[in-house]
């Protein structure tokens, strides 16, 4: 009985494993939650092991805050069709991601839509072998 319970627990735990971010664990992000924000790109760090898209967001109180959206490095982004020129400073977009558990303004970037042309960007698609 004890063994069966342990096996069930392990199965559940492994099913919950989401290897969404290579290089470091993603436990600091809540992968069960999604935040979607509208904003303007202030910086695009195309770096290894992770890239960061900085997006300035205006809150309901009119104050602005810059969020960081984490994605994979430049080669993996290239494989998902995301180029350095896609997000120039000033680009307006809607962006979604899994937020940090501790409330810091950062998230794993899951999808973005560029407002100027409606183009969608999914950085996670870069791991596909095609």
């Amino acid at each position: 009985m004890k063994k069966a319970l342990l096996a069930a627990f392990i199965t559940f735990a492994l099913a919950a494993v989401t290897p969404s971010v290579a290089h470091h664990s993603s436990t600091m992000f809540d992968t069960t939650q999604t935040v979607t924000l509208e904003g303007v790109v202030t910086k695009w760090e195309l770096t290894n092991p992770h890239s960061w898209l900085h997006v300035e967001v205006k809150g309901k109180d009119g104050k602005t805050k810059v969020w960081g959206f984490e994605a994979e490095g430049p080669s993996t982004l290239a494989r998902s069709g995301i180029k350095p020129s896609d997000f120039k400073v000033g680009t307006k977009l809607t962006i979604s991601g899994n937020p940090m558990r501790d409330g810091q303004p950062a998230a794993i970037w899951t999808e973005a839509t560029r407002m100027s042309d409606g183009k969608k960007f999914n950085p996670r698609a870069g791991f596909a072998v095609k």
């Binding site: 760090e45 770096t47 290894n48 092991p49 984490e70 490095g73 494989r79 095609k130």
Partner: peptide, 19 residues
Amino acid sequence: LSDPDLRIRYWDCSESSNN
């Protein structure tokens, strides 16, 4: 991979302190 323009980029972990 089928993209003929794909290049392997140098990997420098110190590029961003956010990492």
